[in-house]
């Protein structure tokens, strides 16, 4: 495997981190245009305002964190990131969420691992808590289908374009999202 972390970082650096600049996507490896600009892109906030860390790609210490590369990206870019990682041969580890109730945000985390190289990449995206939606990556990684359904079960995050967001692990008539911090146990 010839891929190095620095190359990977450079590739991921081609993602658009400031939302209104779709032209920048062309700087990186070619991405299919209909994916990199999802239909609901106007709903995507500039998450840098409230996120603890700004958007971008950074190397993190694997020994203390368990990932090599962390990508913070606006919700509009998760599909582009998935496509990019797909081209690099990454496999989908998991999709999950975190409810940051104090900041009024939800975080969607996409974990990737590489089947032949020791790299782990976490793609994170912050979305507003009262209107949580991100485009689905299940077209890129079919395995994301179940992970996104689960995340929808637990957090109520809507994955736009997902084929079937019916509850997976919760009962089929569940209308609650237990991992939200305001869900009373």
């Amino acid at each position: 495997m010839s891929l190095t972390l620095q190359q990977l970082q450079a590739h991921l650096g081609g993602l658009v981190f400031a939302p209104p600049e779709p032209a920048a996507a062309a700087a990186g490896p070619p991405t299919s245009p209909e994916r990199s600009s999802p239909p609901e892109s106007e709903a995507v906030p500039s998450s840098a305002a409230t996120a603890p860390e700004p958007d971008g790609v950074r190397l993190v210490d694997y020994a203390s964190r368990g990932v090599h590369l962390e990508v913070r990206t606006p919700a509009s870019q998760v599909v582009a990131a998935a496509e990019l990682l797909d081209r690099e041969g990454f496999a989908l580890d998991a999709v999950t969420g975190v409810d940051w109730i104090a900041q009024g945000e939800m975080e969607v985390i996409y974990d990737y691992f590489h089947p032949t190289a020791p790299w782990r990449v976490a793609v994170r995206s912050r979305i507003p808590r009262d209107h949580p939606q991100v485009p689905t990556i299940s077209a890129v990684f079919p395995g994301a289908n179940w992970h996104e359904r689960e995340t929808h079960d637990f957090f109520g995050i809507r994955f736009l374009g997902h084929p079937d967001l019916t509850p997976l692990l919760l009962p089929e008539d569940a209308d609650f999202h237990p991992l939200k911090k305001d869900f009373a146990v």
Binding site: A94, F113, P115, T116, F141, P142, G143
Partner: peptide, 22 residues
Amino acid sequence: RKYGATGPVIRGSGIAYDVRKV
């Protein structure tokens, strides 16, 4: 790779992916 299958499943498909080694 697309489904994130691991363990004996991925190793039975010819990819030597084992967290203990990788």
